[in-house]
């Protein structure tokens, strides 16, 4: 490791705030573009599942009424 201490790694001789903010924002954006499509697919699958369930029960009650 290049830096002697955590303090030195955080301050980076005065450039620390620029470097660490750049990495943090990048981390946030990468997490977002990885998580959002996965969440969207999950949500869609769940919605289709409830729709299917409702349809099936709807058919069943419909038949029972007749």
């Amino acid at each position: 490791m290049y830096f002697d201490s955590l303090q030195a790694a955080l301050s980076m001789e005065g450039h620390g705030s620029f470097v660490w903010v750049a990495y943090l924002i990048t981390l946030l954006i990468i997490s977002a573009i990885l998580l959002l499509p996965a969440l969207r697919r999950r949500r869609l699958l769940r919605r289709i599942a409830t729709e299917l369930a409702r349809q099936e029960s709807g058919y069943a009650t419909g038949k029972g009424a007749r």
Binding site: M12, E13, F18, V19, A22
Partner: peptide
């Protein structure tokens, strides 16, 4: 100095 480390992203 250390500011160049931003190059890696």
């Amino acid at each position: 100095g250390n500011s160049y480390r931003i190059i890696y992203i």
